[in-house]
Every structure is written in C-alpha cells, then in structure tokens.
Write a protein that binds this DNA or RNA. Structure first.
Lengths: 194, 194
DNA sequence: GCTAAATGTTAATCTAGTTTAATATCTTTT
DNA sequence: AAAAGATATTAAACTAGATTAACATTTAGC
C-alpha cells in the first residue's frame, strides 16, 4: 500500500521509530491521478512535495515557441515538485503531468516545517535526498556538455531501462534535449551497427 | 573575518544562538589557497564541504579529449564540494581550482553528522540551501535546452555581473558550454548591435 | 473491425556552434 | 623594456543536430 512504500523508502536513509511513522502518517495525504492529468501546472503555486508510489510523470516547461522540454521523468520511488515554486510559494515554471494513471503521497507546504520539528529525522532524510538530487543534476549538466546525443541516449537507456520502456520516444527525445526525428535517426544508426 | 561571514550567511536561513555559534566554531577550519591551487582534484575523495569567504574558484571536469568543462563558478558566499564524492566518500569526478587567492571555511566529512546532531538548525540550513541549489541546477538544464548560446551569455552576464568581471572569457565560454571562439563571435555580434 | 488520433520513420535542406589555424593583445617576469 | 606566456579575436571549412514535410505504423475509441 502507498504509505508503506514511502516509509520503506525513507527508512533507507534514516530509521524511523513506530511512533515517528504514526506521526508522519497524520501529515501525508494520498492522491490518485489519471493519465494526462496535471499534478502541477505552470503558473500555479506548488503546494505539495509528492512521492510517486505508482505510475509515471513528466516535469516539463513549454517554451516561447510552444515546444515542450522535459527536465525530469519520474516513476515509483521518485519525488515530484517544482522546488523553486514550493520553497518560495511563487508561481511554478514547470508543469508536472501524469503519463500513466498515477498514485502519489504528498506533504503539504503549510505543515512540512511542523513535520520537520516533530520528526527531525525527516529533515535529515530530505537533506540527504536533496544532496543526491543535486549531485545527479550537476552530472546531467556535464553529460549534456560532454556527450553526443547518441551517447546520452545509450546512457539513458542503460540507466533507466524501466522508464525507457514505459514512455513514448518523443518524450525520451525531449528529456535528452534533442528532436524526436533525430532520436529516430540515432536509433536506426544503432540498429545498423549490429 | 572569515568565520563571521559564514555565520552571517547561515543566519539568513536559520537563527543560531550565541551558544550554537560557539559550538559551530569548534567544528570548522579556515584554509587559504593561492591562485591556481586545487581545493579538490579529480580522483581524490572530497573530505570537506567548503564555504568561500574570499576569492573565486571553478569546478570542472576534464573529458576524454583533455577538454575542460566548467559546471560551476564560485565566489564569496558560495559553497564548494563534489557532493557525490563527499556523501559517498568515493573518488571525485570534479576538480575545484582557485582562480584567485582564496580563503575558505570548511566542515569535515568525519564530523559533519556530529555537527548536525549538536546543532540541528544546521541540518535545516543545509536542507534549505540544497533546495535552492537543486532548483537552480534544474533551471540551468532548461536554459541550456531552450536558449541560444547568445541568450545564455546575456543571462549569465546579467545574473552574475561580478563573476563575469573577475574571470577570463574562455572560462565563461566553458561554463556556458560553448567554445571560446564562439563566445568571441557572440560578443562582437552584440557589440555591433549597438 | 473501422476510423481517427497519436506516435514513429525517412530524407532533404538548413543552421548554430565546432574546429583549425593564424594573428593580435594583454600580463607577468626578468 | 624585451621576452614569454596567457588570453582574445577573426575567418574559413566543417558537422551535429534542427527543421520541414511526407509517409508509415501503432493505439485507442466507437
């Protein structure tokens, strides 16, 4: 069940007592979305920090030309939120939309500091996953600078084989920062090399 | 003096008591580096999380072709560390080198968890700056996808006018993910537009 | 099972940014 | 103040990836 997978995830980083788990339960809410629904829309204020327990989402911006650019693809065990919007309670730059029917467990902005006070281990937990997130984000910037589109695609496939199967190619292309046509070309190149 | 600027910075995010400040002091060390010296070298394990109190540094990788790619330029009031190396105590992918004579105040990996325990506000502090760091890193990925090199340069100049003045153009180019020749072209284009 | 919509492919043309190489300028050392 | 090293500019040739457009295939709704 949804809450348990969140607890199991948190317990990989810190060890919550039974009591702390009970307390935490009272501060999170479960929500479900259908494929296509938005967890967050550009311009709205991001009120929640959401943990995906089932399904798949994309976080993206729409640029001046109406083109979609995906910064993040998330499946079970990933976090979803426009952090800048969440921490400043300012309108979001990013959209978060479900690619499959999706179930999330969420913390609300208004109570999250209370949760940190009641269960300081959760502040440690978020500190740790933010460290990992920032390290990963920096490495992604470097990959985008140093690797060709083809190598980035191969890296993506190897790193996230599960995500690669579940979402359409044109979203993978957007995540990689290239056009769907060019990804198609890359794929046929790779196929010929065999 | 160095320590005071760190304390002032931390107090922007959390409010330390006199006693907490005293305690913190016993866990940080000051170091100075000359221009050109390395705070961290690729392959070494990152043992410290460093706050710059004076000077300027670059964080970069050297790719297979021997080319340098800068992920981060840091001046007074910025943090420096290869986070992945620091949290996992594994060899660093990144180098951190001083561009000017530089003074830092640093936390050591071996005692930082102790500091968090003694002064939980510091865990909150790091959680907050990591949130900001991750938000900024994600926005940079999007800028790299959506903006032309010229617009990224103008954005950089506007956002970090102080850094722009202090470091050579070829490092700005590397930070922007373009060649120094192309940045030179962009600059002459901009000059002609006036 | 049919139709429409969504997704994917191919190929020609185009362009932002790279590469190479030569020259210029600025900074530091002696 | 000369020489050497570091930094910056310019321009020609080149390439990774974008754009456009036509067509193919797969998926979902009825």
């Amino acid at each position: 069940m949804a809450l348990n997978s969140l607890l199991a995830y948190i317990n990989n980083y810190v060890s919550l007592t039974e009591e702390e788990e009970r307390l935490l339960e009272t501060y999170v809410t479960k929500r479900t979305y259908l494929k296509g629904q938005y967890i967050l829309q550009q311009g709205d204020i991001c009120r929640h920090s959401s943990f995906i327990t089932k399904g798949c989402s994309k976080m993206f911006v729409v640029d001046a030309d109406g083109q979609e650019h995906i910064i993040m693809l998330a499946v079970e065990g990933w976090w979803n939120s426009d952090i800048a919007s969440f921490i400043n309670q300012k309108p979001a730059d990013f959209n978060i939309q479900c690619i499959e029917d999706t179930e999330i467990v969420q913390f609300h902005y208004d109570t999250i500091e209370t949760v940190y006070t009641l269960v300081p281990k959760l502040e440690k937990f978020f500190r740790k996953i933010l460290e990992r997130g920032l390290a990963a984000s920096q490495k992604r910037i470097i990959r985008n600078f140093t690797m060709t589109a083809k190598d980035r695609y191969l890296y993506f496939k190897a790193s996230y084989p599960d995500i690669d199967q579940r979402i359409p190619q044109y979203m993978v292309a957007s995540y990689l920062g290239i056009t769907k046509e060019f990804l198609s070309k890359i794929k046929s190149q790779i196929a010929q090399e065999r």
